[in-house]
Design a protein around this nucleic acid. Structure first.
Lengths: 108, 108
DNA sequence: TAAACCTGCAACTAAATGGTTGCGTATATC
DNA sequence: GATATACGCAACCATTTAGTTGCAGGTTTA
């Protein structure tokens, strides 16, 4: 099994959960209320998010608060860096335009 | 079916393909040589990448060159923005540290 | 102590994923 | 025209996913 940040953000529900848990720590129950989904379904997403190490627990009595780990989100940022090098370059942008033009000429 | 950038980058093989296709346009055959995988397997990944609109075709005789669409990668960058706001803030970073401390105190 | 609540985990199901092999089609070469 | 090559697509298979329901354990409260 993979279990990395990229798998964590692959699902739209998990992305929404991550956004919420970045704004503030929340319990599974509170999260489930935000979605049209059972508590257990949310719980399974949280489990995956935990395995991907993008969220952390914080127990408070019988409740468990979860919050996101921003350092893991930075991994995505670092991976994007190699693409940013290309879209930051004006030369490459021009190159892209020319490539698109050629592609259009040869379209199916 | 979802078919968005986030699904495109969920698979490690597809991420590798995307990196290669950003450096230079390549044919499916050329890509397959880079991985321990059949041409058809690569083809299936390319199909998904096309459905996610992160790569484009460019026919050249009986060969088809693929290249990445950097504008789609920017979508990830834009989504990351909401997290970047948090990790750029010193206050939030401190907040994170305190939250971690509290979490450690209450660990299982 | 008993009852109510919050949660995680196991079992199950339907659908999607990632891979395979085989085939049809279009292009290039002889 | 015949043959070889490059590719996409369909069928198939094993595994994973995303959801469900049901249950057990710990915490709070009466």
């Amino acid at each position: 099994m993979k279990r990395d940040v990229f798998q964590a953000i692959a699902d739209p529900t998990r992305r929404a959960i991550l956004v919420l848990l970045t704004a503030q720590a929340m319990t599974p129950n509170a999260l489930a209320e935000q979605f049209q989904m059972s508590r257990q379904a949310v719980s399974k997403h949280i489990r995956i998010l935990r395995e991907c190490e993008v969220v952390e627990q914080q127990k408070a009595g019988r409740e468990i608060y979860y919050h996101s780990r921003l350092d893991k989100m930075k991994e995505i940022d670092r991976w994007l860096e190699q693409f940013r090098q290309h879209w930051d370059s004006r030369f490459k942008q021009l190159d892209q335009v020319l490539t698109n033009l050629k592609a259009k000429q040869n379209e199916t």
